[in-house]
Amino acid sequence: MDTHNLILIEKLCSHYEIELSFFDELETMGLIEIKTIKKVQFIHQDSISDLEKMIRLHHELAINAEGIDVVFNLLKKVDKLEEELNSVRNRLQLFENDY
């Protein structure tokens, strides 16, 4: 199988100084997807941005995998609400300055 765009988890562990078990926990929470090819574990490079955010939350704020799951869910909600707020603001302009 093609490993193009996949990053070795082992490499990530040593780079970020993270235990392999942390990746397992994130996967259990459904926060990342680990691909196993010939018994070697990889993560897709598109997930790196989110993964780094999770590592920062873990390192800098001492948040565990469960907490990260909650934070990510809430951030998604915030994003959705912000989008909605923007749409409502734009809609409001329809009724402004009419008279």
Partner: peptide
């Protein structure tokens, strides 16, 4: 040190 998590390379 690791404590404040300055680990990234992105």
């Amino acid at each position: 040190s690791r404590q404040s998590g300055q680990t990234g390379f992105r």
